[in-house]
Design a binder for these strands. Structure first.
Lengths: 228, 228
DNA sequence: TAAACAATAATCCATACGGATTACTTCGTG
DNA sequence: CACGAAGTAATCCGTATGGATTATTGTTTA
């Protein structure tokens, strides 16, 4: 049996939602809210400055957020903090968003309208069995979208998913491609016929957009986490 | 509100299962079992000989059946009787079967272990809102298979074959593991409780054994060149 | 047309990295 | 017991990297 205590992170840009959720969870003593963030960027920053034993077990994540939305935060969070279970907690969204959140690594998808007991029991169920919580309405949407289009064709092209999820420009994709092959700035510059300084500038812009800070992290994201 | 009376079809090859299910539904007067069949072929034949107003609203379908299995019957049934909602009712199956049943046109997927009330409330919910019933465990499987497909299944631990091919020690494998996740020397040191200098020394030894000279090349070897 | 964005480029600084060398400890195995 | 292999640790050096800032040019679009 796992720990009885479950460390929970709440990520939502609206203070009202955060408080409602806190209140809902507070009735259940097994939940320990160890991290609250206003958006994905905030969340990742706080995570990085956290001691290992304070890393949350579960992140309850809204999708619509400024600075960094839920899909991006799940993709990055799941890559760098693989022990965290990401559960989307949101109002009813379109299939595309559901789909992208799941591909990013969400293991559950609950509607905000679910009541306190439902949420609690589903989270406990997940903690015990590993089975992610899914609201029936969401499951239905997933089924429909699966019937419509096969997943294979939706898998899409390599670097494109990074580009679409993180708004990389054409040039930045090109440079990322070379970067993750291990080329030096001067080599990238030579290959693209630009100054090494410019190559470096592009790389810095890419880091900002992906919210990482080293070439190694870029490679990790792209190669190991299949974000490519 | 739709009809209070819901016409139900039961398709299962085992008489025991049929009876258990009948019993479960009998507690709920809104269900009217109008058709019982032993397999898909039997089901379709009986359907064709039925008056229009006796066509069931819902078909509760087992998957493993002789003569004609559940997937085929759903595909054919959904084509010729588009008003019928097909709900798979089965024990826990592998992802592939779940997938095929959904693509064939199943609008719900329940586990046989669900209790009477759960099944009844989910069927009623579907009848009212059109939202198909899905057991949490099944929804979880679907999510997992979607994630796997999108991540494109890169094979298991490359580290072992690297180790065997290049005579890396246990400690070196351990360190390589952390290195290619993008950790700094100081982070590797902290994680393994050794000096960052030592971590670096190990990395230098690894580079020599692999005949490379940068972290990027290590990652390239392991991730892109698929293990080596 | 003005504003926003993309690509180009340079500079400064602190730090991380790759490379080489030296040294101490703890194991086994011969 | 002695020797080597593995793990530990420190130091010095030069280069590459990450981070921040500033600036010019062209393109797009509101």
């Amino acid at each position: 049996m796992p720990d009885l205590m479950m460390k929970i992170a709440i990520i939502d840009d609206k203070a009202g939602n955060r408080n409602i959720l806190k209140e809902k969870l507070s009735c259940h003593p097994e939940f320990n809210i160890t991290l609250v963030a206003e958006n994905g960027k905030d969340f990742l920053e706080k995570l990085r400055s956290l001691a290992d034993d304070m890393i949350p077990d579960v992140a309850l994540m809204d999708l619509e957020m400024p600075e960094m939305d839920g899909v991006k935060s799940i993709a990055l969070g799941a890559a760098f903090f693989p022990t965290i279970k990401f559960v989307v907690l949101t109002i009813f969204d379109d299939e595309e968003k559901i789909f992208r959140a799941i591909k990013a690594g969400a293991c559950g998808y609950l509607l905000k309208e679910e009541n306190s007991d439902t949420i609690a029991s589903m989270l406990n169920h997940m903690h015990e069995t590993g089975v992610g919580p899914i609201s029936p309405g969401i499951a239905h949407k997933i089924l429909q979208s699966m019937q419509k289009k096969s997943i294979e064709e939706h898998a899409g092209s390599p670097l494109k998913s990074i580009a679409s999820n993180f708004d990389l420009t054409e040039r930045e994709q090109e440079i990322l491609q070379l970067l993750v092959q291990g080329l030096l700035y001067k080599e990238i510059g030579a290959k693209l016929d630009i100054s090494p300084n410019t190559a470096k500038k592009h790389v810095m812009n890419i880091y900002q957009k992906l919210h990482i800070n080293s070439r190694a992290q870029a490679m990790y994201l792209i190669y190991d986490k299949g974000l490519l």
